[in-house]
Amino acid sequence: MKRLSGESALVTGGARGIGEAIVRTFVDEGARVMIADVLEGEGEVLRQTLGEAARFRRLDVTSGADWSTAVTETEQAFGPVSVLVNNAGIVEFGSMEETDPQVFRRVVDVNLYGPWLGMRATVPSMRRAGSGVILNVSSTAGLMGYANLGVYVASKWGLRGLTKTAALELAASGIRVCSIHPGPITTPMTEGMDASIAADQPIPRFGTPDEVAAMALFLAADATYSTGSEFVIDGGATTGSMVLAL
């Protein structure tokens, strides 16, 4: 039996990158998936490759109305939502002094307010399903600081904390909530980044979206005793500094 047979999933930022890999992995393991993204062209192309196991819905994660429609359409197509992956996110570079306040608000709106809206909209559906799993895709930037990424760091630390609070509040309803913390992953978001930033990691390379998707599958299907937990997939980047040879 496939590991997600009978599950109804909604994946934000599902049209490409990590989200696309999660969508494909979930479908391969028997789930029926609503691909949610603002990238309509790429989302529709992906849906067509997956057949009846997937639908696409345009979703601006900062819109409560969009969330309500997405959950309703997922229920109509596949039944109550049992897995939510809050994967949609954006990044902006710049020092605290250089960053425009509107940029700060936009990043936090997408990366933190969006997942909060998503959980709020989806939990009633999970209660109808009888249980659920929420996976919030944070970052190693939710575990440590990065110079010139203050806005992104703030949003990802916030998502980490929101995950823990949601886990406490939703446990009685049979809903598990965990956060995933990728390090450098080869996606459209990281195009142009210097590969050398991973050179000093214990595993000295960028990760792949499929590796993150494998983690998401484990959390959705197998990690039945985990909630409020942080799962790091970063090639060891946050482990510490390598000891210099004497």
Rank of each mutant, 00 (worst) to 15 (best):
L4M: 12
G6K: 08
E7S: 15
S8C: 14
A9V: 01
G13N: 08
G14D: 06
G17F: 11
I18T: 08
G19W: 11
G19T: 09
E20C: 09
E20N: 05
V23Q: 03
V23I: 13
V23E: 06
R24F: 12
F26G: 08
V27G: 03
R32K: 13
V33Q: 02
V33T: 01
V33E: 05
I35H: 00
I35N: 04
L39R: 14
E42I: 08
V45D: 14
Q48L: 13
E52M: 07
A53W: 10
A54R: 04
F56Q: 05
F56C: 06
R57M: 12
L59C: 12
D60Y: 13
S63M: 12
D66H: 14
W67F: 11
S68E: 15
A70W: 06
A70S: 07
E73F: 11
Q76N: 15
G79T: 12
P80C: 04
P80G: 10
V81M: 02
N86Q: 06
N86P: 11
S95Q: 08
E97V: 11
D100N: 14
D100F: 06
P101T: 03
Q102P: 00
Q102N: 14
Q102A: 15
V103M: 12
V103F: 03
V108C: 02
Y113V: 15
L117F: 07
L117S: 12
R120G: 06
A121E: 10
T122L: 07
M126V: 02
R127S: 04
G130N: 01
S131E: 15
V133H: 10
V133E: 13
N136C: 08
V137L: 13
V137C: 12
S138V: 08
L143M: 12
L143I: 01
L143E: 01
M144V: 08
G145I: 00
V151L: 04
V151A: 06
V153I: 02
S155R: 02
S155F: 08
S155Y: 01
G158S: 05
R160T: 14
T163Y: 00
A167W: 01
L168S: 14
A171M: 05
A171W: 07
S173T: 00
S173C: 10
R176I: 09
V177C: 03
S179I: 02
I180G: 07
H181P: 04
P182K: 08
P182E: 03
G183T: 04
G183P: 04
I185R: 00
T187W: 03
P188I: 01
P188F: 09
E191T: 11
E191D: 13
E191M: 10
G192M: 07
M193L: 15
D194M: 01
I197R: 06
A198F: 09
A199N: 13
D200M: 09
P204D: 03
D210C: 02
A213C: 06
A214H: 07
M215V: 15
A216E: 11
L217F: 14
F218Q: 04
F218V: 10
A220W: 11
A220I: 10
A221R: 04
A221E: 01
A221D: 03
D222N: 13
T224H: 01
Y225C: 01
S229E: 10
E230V: 14
F231A: 06
I233F: 11
D234K: 07
A237C: 06
T239K: 06
L246E: 13
